[in-house]
């Protein structure tokens, strides 16, 4: 399967199954498009009609080049992965390598669009005790098999409302590393209100990544991210974020925003973040029911797709000016990206990745917490709902018939089970709007790679 598109002056050809990416001129672009349906003579005739200035010999040379790439398995390569799709998860058995620790089901903000219903996940509020957290870490280590790299995200609600427990859990995990031959990578996701010098010092010493919630422009951020008195939080958190990021050397963090119907023109918020001095940026579409006033409409989806293109073009400008910014979804490592087994198996929710509630209950990921039928078990007894785990184990890009003809399937790996469930009622469903946005992001990300290669070549 081949996908061709033109963006920002680049003609790009993706070969889905080999992962090959080609940047071509207009003649090659047209030849590749004609290749499956026409004979060599037919292609030559069509190209000479369309590009009368190109000598016939050059057309034949280009056809030979295309044939060579096909022979090398880099164009129109066959899809031979269907039989491998479940292998990695089957081979991994019941290994778990990552936990999202919900250390606080409560929050000091009252954001109306919160997927976690103001941090309580449609249930009661509460904080995780050290004993529950310690048991969760023991559960993770004892189920991690031969995996060395383990990941723990301190999440909520607002995790800083349970700061003392976080510090003790980090210390406990560190005490296990040498004797159990494990390496913990910690992430902290916070709204920033409780950041102080002690949090900055500890986070910059122990957290491999911090995710800082900021929606961009003050009027956008303060419209929804308010405290229980209705006051916006922008003025209180921005200086704290700037101080934390400076102390961190400007690395290993993300400013993470959410865009809604109110700011489908979200690039203005990203550029605002950049103007505040932040360079590592992530901006995501809101996750909510279609009836919610914050929900993106079909018209918004078209706006957002155009915004992704504007963002890519602006990033290119800033890169050339020596002031680059990083957008999470545009980070593609073309030489050291995930292997095919990872691409076939997806994010690992419900199998190698689980969320833990403050009371020790296990869910397939943070977005399923609070939906009782998705409870997998708990950190004392392990996974008891094995049928549910098997459903998630069988969840991959080849288990979704709608993905069969999608050129982006080995980039998205079938997408997010939670988004699919909330959109269709089935974890193996398809969240169409999410797919559209994902494909546009990948097109933009690859265009940026083509531009970067050109800049390197010129240098």
């Amino acid at each position: 399967m081949v996908h061709q598109y033109q963006l920002n002056g680049y003609n790009i050809v993706l070969d889905t199954c080999s992962g090959s990416i080609h940047v071509v001129d207009e003649v090659a672009y047209d030849i590749i498009a004609l290749f499956p349906d026409k004979t060599t003579e037919g292609i030559v005739q069509a190209i000479l009609n369309r590009h009368p200035d190109v000598p016939e010999k050059e057309v034949l040379d280009c056809i030979a080049e295309v044939e060579q790439l096909i022979g090398q398995g880099q164009l129109y390569s066959p899809d031979s992965f269907a039989s491998m799709a479940g292998n990695f998860k089957q081979r991994s058995g019941n290994i778990i390598k990552a936990l999202c620790l919900h250390v606080a089901h409560t929050c000091n903000l009252n954001c109306s669009y919160c997927f976690a219903s103001q941090g309580k996940y449609h249930g009661k509020g509460g904080l995780m005790s050290f004993d529950v957290g310690k048991q969760a870490l023991d559960f993770l280590v004892s189920h991690s098999g031969d995996r060395v790299n383990l990941e723990v995200d301190f999440f909520g609600g607002e995790p800083l409302l349970n700061w003392e427990v976080i510090k003790r859990l980090v210390a406990y995990a560190r005490s296990l590393e040498t004797k159990r031959h494990k390496k913990f990578r910690f992430t902290l996701t916070t709204n920033g209100l409780l950041i102080d010098d002690e949090v900055i010092d500890f986070a910059n010493r122990e957290m491999n990544n911090v995710v800082l919630s900021l929606d961009g422009r003050k009027e956008i951020h303060d419209r929804l991210r308010v405290d229980y008195a209705g006051n916006g939080s922008y003025d209180r958190i921005v200086p704290k974020f700037q101080k934390l990021v400076r102390a961190r050397g400007g690395k290993n963090y993300y400013i993470r925003g959410t865009f809604t119907h109110a700011n489908a023109d979200f690039t203005n918020d990203i550029f605002h973040m950049a103007n505040l001095g932040f360079t590592e940026l992530s901006m995501e579409p809101v996750v909510c029911s279609p009836e919610d006033p914050a929900a993106l409409t079909p018209a918004d989806i078209e706006t957002v797709k155009r915004q992704y293109e504007i963002l890519a073009q602006e990033m290119l400008k800033r890169q050339k000016a020596g002031q680059p910014i990083t957008f999470y979804h545009y980070m593609l490592d073309l030489t050291g990206g995930p292997c095919i087994y990872k691409r076939l198996s997806g994010c690992g929710s419900g199998t190698e990745y689980m969320a833990v509630t403050p009371w020790g209950d296990l869910y397939p990921c943070h977005q399923f917490v609070g939906e009782e039928k998705f409870k997998l078990g708990d950190v004392w007894n392990g996974v008891e709902n094995t049928a549910l785990r098997e459903q998630f184990r069988s969840c991959n890009v080849y288990s979704r018939p709608q993905c069969a003809d999608c050129w982006a399937k080995l980039y998205c790996s079938g997408g997010c089970a939670a988004n699919a469930y909330h959109a269709t009622g089935d974890i193996r469903g398809i969240y169409e709007a999410g797919c559209e946005l994902f494909r546009k992001r990948i097109e933009c990300a690859i265009m940026l790679q083509a531009a970067a290669a050109e800049i390197t070549e010129e240098a």
């Binding site: 080999s18 992962g19 071509v24 001129d25 090659a28 040379d61 280009c62 790439l69 030489t335």
Partner: peptide, 9 residues
């Protein structure tokens, strides 16, 4: 004349 540049496999 090479009209195709391969960026990645």
């Amino acid at each position: 004349m090479k009209r195709i540049k391969t960026l990645a496999t």
